[in-house]
Nucleic acid binder design. Structure first.
Length: 703
DNA sequence: TGGTCAATAT
DNA sequence: GATATTGACC
């Protein structure tokens, strides 16, 4: 038996460096798919070129397109997290054997990693330090026992030293914070104490102390808000606004009193007196510290129509037939999907239904398929385009796309500076529709992509089949073109009014909607990830366009209203409905799809809410996880990582994203939020404020 | 024991 | 400076 030697590195670059320095000593690379900077696919590509050793990609992303893409790219295996340690064991043997042209003997008896018998010398595991281990607990333990860490001295020390290492620092990421907020909301602020919050949050590794600390901070924030009076006329209290908490709560604090989307808000009366200057409402600053909390976890990804749901505790392996002689395990991947191995298909699979409906076969996004129709849809739709539905993702982490020009962006992202606001439609990562493409009437600006070459998939709506003629197919409309994004700090990204839960009872996905209820139009969340991307160097432009669109929408949707003035910023920001039927339904399950209509067009405020989210999100920084990212960032924004425009389209199941299987209450064990060692898969919340101010100024001056 | 506050650390 | 951790006190 030869001892298995494993080197863990934090990122792709380190992995490559290690490989290079090791002078071909490694036999196998296991990498996360979604990583900052160079993602798993890129790494695989590079490794393949340079070292010709098999690469196993693992990710919690079980989307078929992603899987296929990965396999297409040459990954030896694709393992869906959480990885079953036995699978890992076997796979790695197989992969290595494959490389050496050996037959692999499956020995189930081997079981765990320490039992590995092979000629393997070294295995390099590239897993972002901030990513969760992705291996379930049992797997983690086995994994640890079986490997010898080279890089992680601290861990090594931890393992050998009886003296426990210093407690890992908890980074309150958006998701974590959202969960916190959800807990507080659920418990009610008055009764929310660390212990209860902790219980509700149910985040492994998180301690009561952590929660207490965060609660303390949160209370301080609330106090601050209460003292300052929150939004006063045009002058958004910048200090507050800029604060992470403010960012995070902005959307939560003000709700359309006309819409009781949040039953629990009743416990927090003040919240229901949100200001609506333009609509005769009143804008109430926070007079109390009882801030409403409306944060909900990311929606569960329901890759319903294809890839089997792989939940916590399960793993799935995807074998690359091109890399391996034969599959070694029964492949849980549906045959019909497995057979789809052509590259062209990969980009299309996500909306295969839509494609089918439209007679489009492959390789194109809905937009590509029929832009006219989309446009028509937009126009058909009585609902003005809601800016709020535009998501701006900013993450390299984010989707499977990342820099690979790939696949879906279903994974909200995570916090990079790569703001993009353009429409990206491609089957192979090609940027389509860059350069300010617009839809007539309700414009959806396309824009630029700053370093993001990913493909944003347009998603089909599972409800499409029942959609009224003329409005079907694409799962988006003027009001529904949605983006995905990383969660801002408590941003609306997870509550984008754009995305609604699939509801079999209400399938008028793209049906023209009365203006006042447009925000409530149901839209399936399934497989959603329409996106906006911008191209390199056009960041500002795209952003500007978005802003313009925001204004346009406001005008369009609110014909009776005066033009937005500076003083209406507040209104823009919080005034009207920040309708989040999506969450409402999913999270609380309180409401039907047809939420009470609001006399207030959501379009007016949603956009800005979203924009504000960008502020909030932009306030987030990524702790030095991704130094290499900065090179692609606009100068002066080096630390701005999370430009988030709401529109958490997709369920979050990313390597960097804790996944919330259940959006409400007792959380299911998040796939990726293992906190031992504190793994937090998104940008921490902090206070970069560059974008915030910029943006606000823009809002106030550009009309 | 648990919550809160404040000092300290990063 | 902001935020997380730790310790003290209730």
């Amino acid at each position: 038996m030869i001892e298995l030697s494993i080197v863990t590195v934090k990122n792709s670059l380190d992995a490559l460096a290690t490989l290079r320095s090791a002078n071909e000593a490694f036999e196998l690379v296991v990498t996360d798919l979604h990583m900052p900077g160079m993602n798993g696919l890129e790494l695989q590509k590079q490794v393949k070129e340079e070292f010709k050793i098999p690469v196993i990609i693992m990710s919690s992303d079980d989307k078929e397109s992603v899987v296929l893409k990965s396999l297409e790219s040459g990954a030896a295996f694709y393992m869906v997290k959480p990885v079953n340690p036995d699978d890992l064991h076997n796979v790695w043997q197989y992969a290595v054997a494959s490389k050496k042209g050996k037959e692999v003997v499956i020995d189930q008896e081997m079981g765990s990693a320490e039992g590995v018998t092979s000629s393997i010398d070294k295995l390099i595991v590239c897993e972002d330090a901030n990513s969760s281990s992705s291996v379930n607990e049992e797997g983690s333990q086995k994994k640890k026992r079986g490997r010898k860490r080279v890089r992680d001295h601290q861990d090594q020390k931890e393992e050998n030293d009886p003296v426990p290492a210093k407690k890992a620092k908890v980074v309150w990421t958006n998701t974590l914070h959202n969960r916190f907020l959800q807990a507080v909301s659920h418990i009610s602020l008055e009764k929310a104490v660390p212990k209860k919050i902790l219980e509700f949050m149910n985040v492994p590794g998180l301690t009561r102390e952590n929660v207490a600390s965060h609660l303390q901070k949160y209370r301080m924030f609330l106090k601050k808000v209460a003292e300052k009076g929150f939004w006063t006329s045009r002058n958004v209290s910048e200090r507050v606004l800029r604060s992470s908490f403010a960012y995070g709560y902005a959307n939560s604090m003000f709700q359309n009193p006309q819409q009781e989307y949040w039953p629990f808000l009743r416990q927090q009366p003040f919240m229901r007196s949100s200001f609506q200057p333009g609509y005769g409402g009143t804008f109430c600053g926070l007079g109390s510290s009882r801030c409403g909390l409306l944060r909900f976890p990311n929606q569960e990804a329901s890759s319903s129509n294809s890839v089997p749901q792989l939940r916590y505790g399960q793993s799935s392996l995807f074998c690359n037939p091109t890399s391996l002689q034969r599959p070694m395990f029964s492949n849980p991947y549906p045959l019909h999907l497995a057979n789809r191995s052509t590259f062209n298909n990969t980009g299309m699979n996500l909306f295969s239904n839509a494609a089918t409906t439209n007679g489009v076969t492959s390789g194109t996004s809905p937009m590509q398929m029929n832009p006219e129709q989309n446009q028509a849809n937009l126009q058909n739709n009585a609902t003005p385009f809601k800016f709020g539905t535009i998501g701006i993702d900013s993450s390299n982490y984010s989707s499977g796309a990342s820099n690979m020009g790939t696949i879906n962006s279903s994974y909200p992202s995570l916090n990079q500076n790569n703001n993009y606001a353009g429409i990206r439609l491609t089957s192979e990562g090609e940027l389509i529709g860059t350069g300010l493409k617009r839809f007539s009437g309700n414009e959806l600006s396309s824009g630029s992509n700053n370093g993001f070459n990913g493909l944003i998939n347009w998603t089909h709506n599972n409800n499409l089949n029942n959609a009224p003629p003329g409005n079907e197919k694409f799962g988006f409309s003027g009001a529904q073109v949605a983006g995905f994004s990383s969660t801002g700090f408590g941003s609306a990204s997870q509550f984008s009014p754009t995305f609604f839960p699939a509801n079999p009872e209400n399938t008028s996905v793209l049906a023209p909607m009365p203006q006042q209820t447009s925000a409530l139009a149901p839209l399936s969340q399934q497989h959603t990830s329409t996106g906006l991307a911008n191209t390199e160097g056009e960041n500002d432009n795209a952003f500007h366009n978005l802003m313009n669109n925001a204004s346009n929408f406001c005008s369009i949707s609110d014909n009776n209203q005066q033009d937005l003035g500076e003083g209406d910023l507040g209104e823009l920001l919080f005034g009207s409905t920040y309708a989040t039927p999506y969450q409402e339904q999913n999270v609380e399950g309180f409401l039907n799809v047809n939420l009470p209509s609001s006399p207030y067009p959501a379009e007016v405020s949603s956009p800005v809410n979203e924009l504000l989210n960008a502020e909030f999100s932009s306030a987030c920084t990524i702790a030095d996880k991704t130094p290499e990212q900065s090179s692609s960032q606009p100068q002066g924004r080096e630390e701005t990582v999370n430009f988030d425009f709401g529109g958490h389209v997709s369920p979050v199941r990313d390597d960097y994203y804790p996944s919330f299987e259940q959006p409400q209450c007792s959380y299911v064990e998040p796939v990726n939020s293992e906190l031992s060692g504190i793994h937090l898969e998104e940008a921490p919340i902090s206070g970069n404020e560059v974008w915030g101010e910029e943006y606000l100024n823009f809002l106030l001056t550009d009309e």
